[in-house]
């Protein structure tokens, strides 16, 4: 809306600036929450950026939403927005790089190319979008690394070499089909259940073919790669900082995944007719 009143012009500019900042901060906070960052770090990073741009910010973090209001210092103007998280899985690289971006914004110094006293929002948004779009670790590399990790777990629980080999294969095959099923857009909980069942059936090879002296370790370890460790840690971490709502949501999610994988294991035991508790 155009107006000839200079004060109204100034107010319009102030409001537009607040709106741009709020949209950026909301996208930033939801990206961090989606990546599985702890709520305390999200709050710290958002406050750091807001303080550098000279605005006040009120932030409420809910399990799948971020409610944000950005205030002008004189409290005459504000802009509020609700951001929705994306379920792309935990991404520590995005969490780390976005945290570093908040420091970059805080420590911004004008240059010849960009003389602004603060980092332009367009530049900050472009950097944020670049971080979010960074590809994940190669799919095959993750399968191999996870299988080696589960093999190591088997060794730590006292499994012999045959049990370790069984666990490696069971994890690799289970992980492969998990990714396949997710790409077919099957429900995540069902995917966990079926992946656990596949891994456990393969993990039961020690019992079925009698090729290991520690078949129970192979079977028990074969589904451990599905345990949502980071979600459990995040939940307790949020709980310790008084973010009970997000903590409860993350803990419920972790428990549901654990129940699904246990049911997958039980189904595998029913199919293979193995008595093991």
């Amino acid at each position: 809306m155009k107006t000839s009143n200079p004060q109204s012009w100034q107010e319009q500019n102030t409001h537009q600036r607040l709106k741009t900042l709020c949209c950026f901060l909301s996208a930033y906070a939801t990206a961090m929450l989606s990546a599985g960052t702890t709520t305390s770090r999200i709050e710290r990073c958002v406050n750091r950026i807001a303080s550098r741009y000279g605005v006040g910010v009120d932030l409420s973090i809910l399990p799948t939403r971020v409610l944000m209001s950005v205030w002008h210092v004189n409290h005459h103007h504000y802009y509020s927005i609700v951001g929705q998280t994306q379920s792309d899985g935990i991404n520590l690289a995005v969490s780390t790089e976005l945290s570093l971006l908040s420091h970059e914004i805080e420590e911004w110094r004008p240059t010849e190319e960009v003389p602004e006293p603060v980092m332009p929002i367009a530049l900050a948004t472009a950097k944020m979008n670049g971080i979010i779009a960074t590809p994940r670790i190669n799919h095959w590399a993750v399968i191999v690394l996870t299988s080696v990790a589960n093999l190591s777990f088997c060794e730590l629980f006292g499994g012999d070499l045959c049990a370790m080999a069984i666990v490696f294969v069971a994890t690799a095959v289970g992980f492969f089909y998990k990714e396949k099923m997710l790409s077919w857009h099957i429900d995540g909980k069902l995917v966990v259940l079926l992946s656990a069942m596949i891994s456990a059936i393969l993990g039961a090879s020690g019992f079925i073919f009698g090729i290991s002296t520690t078949p129970e370790t192979a079977l028990g370890t074969s589904v451990l790669w599905l345990v949502p460790g980071i979600r459990f840690i995040n939940a307790v971490s949020d709980m310790l900082r008084g973010q009970y709502l997000v903590a409860q949501s993350r803990m419920s999610e972790a428990l549901i995944i654990t129940i699904c994988l246990s049911m997958g294991l039980c189904l595998a035991l029913l199919i293979t007719k193995i008595q093991w508790v």
Binding site: G36, L92, L156, W225, I230
Partner: peptide
């Protein structure tokens, strides 16, 4: 073996490769 487990299970959460 704990080192291998931490790297392997950590890789699912996509940490920066250099770290």
């Amino acid at each position: 073996f704990a080192c291998l487990a931490a790297i392997g299970f950590g890789s699912i959460s996509n940490p920066p490769r250099r770290l």
